[in-house]
Structures are given as structure tokens and as C-alpha cells.
Design a binder for these strands. Sequence first.
DNA 1: CCAGTTTATTGGTATAGACCAGAAATCTAA
DNA 2: TTAGATTTCTGGTCTATACCAATAAACTGG
Lengths: 238, 238
Amino acid sequence: MSHSPLYLELRTRLLALIRTGELPAGSRLPAERLLAERFETTRVTLRQALGQLESEGCIYRSNRRGWFVSPARLVYEPVRDYSFTRYVTAQGRVPRTEVLGFEEMQAEERVATSLSLPVGAPVYRLKRRRYLDNRLVLVETIWLNARFLPGLEKYRFDQSLWQVFGEVYDIELVHKQITITPTALIGEEVAALEVTSGCPGLHITRISKTAAGETIEYDEEYWLHDVLTIALSTSSYG
Amino acid sequence: MSHSPLYLELRTRLLALIRTGELPAGSRLPAERLLAERFETTRVTLRQALGQLESEGCIYRSNRRGWFVSPARLVYEPVRDYSFTRYVTAQGRVPRTEVLGFEEMQAEERVATSLSLPVGAPVYRLKRRRYLDNRLVLVETIWLNARFLPGLEKYRFDQSLWQVFGEVYDIELVHKQITITPTALIGEEVAALEVTSGCPGLHITRISKTAAGETIEYDEEYWLHDVLTIALSTSSYG
DNA sequence: CCAGTTTATTGGTATAGACCAGAAATCTAA
DNA sequence: TTAGATTTCTGGTCTATACCAATAAACTGG
């Protein structure tokens, strides 16, 4: 029986502090140097334990401000949920949306393919960041087929897009193709989410179509990995 | 403009070796000490770069044997796919299943709840490991409502369970409730998957029912995170 | 030729210390 | 009182080194 490595012991002791409520959800952990001293180890080893808990989704870091205890995960049902604001509110949490940019442009290849358009076709691009209980958890880029949404720039984008589709354009999106890939956040997304490079994340893409099969929306989302649990409930008859 | 940290530069250089085909999918990376020397840095910093690529799912490690380039991700469609063997084969990959144990037992609380049974009801428990192109990628525990599957112990478990359900018991599972949670692998799962603790993973649970609403199966799967992309294609009218 | 033992190699864990850069708190002068 | 400068605190990055444990390769005796 080989004994457990020190950093896993530290992980267990830290987790105990969280489970007992000594460090409640959302609270800040003591400084790394303090913890290292208290546990009689070095910062390097302590950080290994912290990284472990981060990977598990128990704690997260806010850029140079410290480590925090992760709150309960949000349940996301991609098949059913279409409004971030709505399903966040329904779970007793507080959503917030920040618009980073909106512009009309020409579809590049990847976007064109996803929207079933020729390269260079007119599309809108909307970039947003979303907060959960004031924590930045998601950055998304949405490309829209401009042909179906004339004058879209007149509307507000800090609320549900799908609501605008329905109320203004009488468009209902009933078909979705979704992919979910666990990965690490790098580059642009790191900057937008204000996290450290390599932070574990989820890459979710969504293509949405009308009942007639017209592709309206292509969405790319990058989530912090500890925020979500994905739930699906399906029936298949074949 | 602040310059990029060294470990991210190393990450980029390593990634270049992979992208150019100098290190093809499945191949082993040079030893850490060699790479550290070649890049004129220390093992500590080099390992930071390797950890980065591991989080992204570009490379993986095999216990004390070295680092390897991750092959392309497997596409898993939980709504449609029911046989690991089948969807792996369909994607031109080679599946393998290893049975770790099968026994009849009494349902503990979590299992009982999931199977809509009283605590202590008779259930079967099946533990399996699954390989993708000879790489161990998944460990699963399946609990089954014994009442619907008398004499199940007589059958082979290294193939599709659902096939047995259909052919022997005339049971077709059409309703599924699935949850997907990105996390890190620890404890039991680490041992079963022969990885290092804290290795990023996916926790997938599935509850399957017949058309009549009888809950037959409760499944808990732990996947290595770099193996999968999850795909969903849904239509909702309402 | 083979099975068992030894050795070398590899990643895994851990220490000790240094400096940097961003964020927050404090201080200071208008 | 407040806007701006300064200091302090925090995590982020990096070096250099050491030893451990599992694996794989080499060796050795039957």
C-alpha cells in the first residue's frame, strides 16, 4: 500500500474546509502563502492541490485576486433551454449579459459552412459575455443570416435573441445541432473571460434552423467548465 | 504589449511539431528531460506546457511511460447511440470491452433513487472498461433492475447489453435521461483508468426506461476528456 | 532459448527561493 | 472631499535540484 502524495492530502484537507462550511460557496480562500505555511509545505505543492480542486470544479480563480469556492453548478438542458436569462432565473440565480460588439460582415468559410451560405454572404456577428451571480462564466459569438433579419441592429442584444426572432421576425427556431467539447481555454477566450491560459472549459457550438430548414443562427460558446452540468432527456422510437 | 509567458511559447512550439506531422497522432513525445534541454528550460516549466496541451486534449500521458499525441476525438451522440461497439466501429476505430465484474446485490440509496426502486431491492451491478484503438478511455458501472432481467448472469457482457435486452428479454429502452459533467478524475476512477489523479475527465450518467416507463438501467461513465466530442441533433415543437 | 533479476530510463512528487504583474488598499496633495 | 500617486498584497512565472516509483531494457544463469 503506497501512501497518498502530499498534494492529494492537501486537496482533501482543503475540500474538508469547503464541505464543512468553513469556506462557504463564493468565499475567498486564504492567500497561497498563508495556506502553504499553515500546511507546512511550499507554494508549488500547495498550488498543485489547488489545481486539482480547480480541475474538479470545486474552486476557481479570479485573475490575481485569489481563489474562490465554486457555487453549485447550473443545469443546462440544450434541447429545451433557449434563453440564458430564463433558465438561470428559473434556478434562482442572477443572470447578466454584456454586449461586446455587433456588426454586419461577410461570412468567412467556417461560418458560411455552418449557416449553409456561400462564402462572403452578409451575416451579423454578435459578441456577448454572460455573468452568473456576477461571475463571468461565458463568452459567445453568434453569427446570423442577415437575409432573414433585416434591421436587426435596431434591437437590444442584452436580452434573449430568440425573443426578438419570435416577436419581430416571426421566426421560430425548432431544429438545433449542438456539439459539446471539453477543452482548455486559450488565446482570445482567455482574454475575454479574464482567466489564466489553460483554464479548463467547455466549447459548445449550436446551429439553429427554422421548421422549414432555413439556417438562421450559428453560435460558438466558451464556458468555464465548473459552471455547468448538461442534462438531456430524450425519447427515440426506431 | 506584454510578451507571452515561456510555457505558452513552449506550448506553441510543441503544437507546431504535432500540426506539421513531425509528431503524428498516437506517437510518443521525446522524454521530458530531452525536451527541456532542447527548449533550454527546466522540466518544471516544460511540464507546465505539457499540462496545457493535456488540458486542451492535444496530448495525453500513459502512466510513467510518456506523453502521446491524442488521436482525433470520437463523436458521441447520446440521443442516438446505444452501442459503444457500433458507433466506434462506424467511425473507423477499434473498440474493445473488458468486464471487471458482475454481481447481484441490493440497491443502495443513490442507485435505488435512479432506478425508481426501494432501497435494498435486487439489482445487478456490471463494471466494465472500454478501449478505443487499444487506449483505455472509459470506465463504467451499470446497475440494472434485476426484476426485469432474470438469469442475466448467463450472458456475455463484453458486447452490447442493449442487444441482449432486445433479443433475450424483448426489452427496448426508448427513454433516456442523461447528465454530462466535466470534472477531474480522482480516487477509484483514477485507478481503474490508470491515469494520474486530477486528470481531466467527463462524468456521464444515464437512466434508461422502456416505453412503458419502467426504469431498467442506471449507468455511470467516466471518460477521459480528450476522447469525446458530444453531438446532439434535436427538434422541439412547442 | 527462456525466466528471473538487475539496471537504466521515465515521469511523479517535492523543496527553496526569486522576481514579475495586476489588483486592492492606502496615502497624499489639490 | 476627491482624484491621482504610491505601496502592499496576491497570484503568475521560472530556475535549479533532489529523490521516488513504475516501466522498460539489458543482463544472467539455468
